[in-house]
């Protein structure tokens, strides 16, 4: 069932090109109410039976999707010694796991919530591997407040935004400010939820109200973005997504089974999307 909501507000805000200067966090895309919501959730971030259980269970799929993107390109140049930037890293579920992979060189995690960054830093101390200098670094910042890389060596093979853009006020400028951090040939990877009646029912009503899998107020359905809208946004970007460098994949949580990739799910539920910055060489 695919119902296309008619709110043109989301469309127009997606297509708007950012004009503000990027240096102050006042102009950041970050929503103060969202930051405070996640500050309150910080203490339960690593509780295996807490509210982040679904995110923990989803994490392997994130790596599977990234691998499928990198392996799909003709020259997987960035397959070893990868550098990751995890935007909206939260308590570090993805950032820690990326830092542990044998093919990872370094991971930088950023999040505007100071509490979740403290939780992330404290949790990383439980693993001697993650304390190795340069392997995993957290910064309590919005991505707009990071210095823009000047040379490819400062850029990242993978810039990830997992379950982030649905919490952002103006996704278009936010996405635009993430683009410069991707190395030529590298990938911007995100996951979010399509804005359909199915997702409204499952995430806002069932997950938050009925079975209480997720704390109330975690999701704002009107901020959800559809896969087609993102595709249009990235197609409009020069130097992105050439030669099959734009991929998406639906996924779904099934009670008693867990998260599974679901072909076609990107049209109506949770989905991953990956877009590759064109290689400068070709």
């Amino acid at each position: 069932m695919v119902i296309r909501p008619t709110t043109s507000r989301n469309l127009s805000r997606l297509l708007r090109i950012p004009t503000q200067c990027r240096s102050s966090s006042q102009s950041s895309s970050v929503n103060a109410a969202e930051v405070s919501h996640f500050n309150n959730l910080a203490s339960t971030w690593w509780d295996p039976y807490g509210s982040s259980r679904l995110l923990h269970q989803m994490n392997p799929l994130r790596h599977d999707f990234i691998s499928s993107c990198i392996e799909s390109q003709p020259d997987p140049t960035s397959s070893t010694n990868r550098r990751y930037l995890d935007v909206g890293c939260g308590g570090g579920i993805f950032a820690e796991s990326a830092a542990r992979l044998l093919w990872t060189k370094s991971v930088v995690g950023v999040d505007p919530s100071s509490q979740v960054i403290s939780v992330a830093k404290a949790h990383a101390r439980q693993d001697p591997l993650l304390l190795e200098p340069g392997r995993l670094e957290y910064q309590n910042k919005a991505v707009e407040d990071l210095p823009i890389p000047r040379i490819p060596e400062e850029q990242f093979d993978v810039v990830s935004l997992f379950e982030v853009i649905e919490h952002i006020n103006r996704p278009a400028p936010f996405l635009s400010s993430c683009l410069p951090f991707v190395k030529p040939g590298g990938w911007l990877i995100l996951s979010t939820i399509a804005r359909t009646w199915t997702s409204w029912l499952t995430t806002n009503v069932v997950a938050e109200e009925v079975v209480r899998l997720v704390p109330r107020g975690t999701h704002d359905w009107s901020k959800y973005i559809n896969e087609q809208e993102l595709r249009r946004f990235f197609r409009a970007q020069d130097g992105w997504g050439r030669d099959g460098g734009l991929k998406s994949q639906g996924c779904m949580y099934m009670p008693a089974v867990g998260w599974r990739m679901v072909p076609g799910g990107e049209k109506w539920g949770n989905y991953f999307l990956g877009v590759r910055k064109d290689s400068t060489r070709s």
């Binding site: 295996p48 259980r53 923990h56 269970q57 994490n59 392997p60 790596h63 599977d64 820690e96 796991s97 990326a98 830092a99 542990r100 992979l101 044998l102 990872t104 439980q126 693993d127």
Partner: peptide, 15 residues
């Protein structure tokens, strides 16, 4: 093996 390939802490229950 699955945990190592997905960067999980192998002592973690959920992962």
């Amino acid at each position: 093996e699955h945990a190592v390939l997905h960067g999980a802490d192998i002592g973690n229950e959920i992962a």
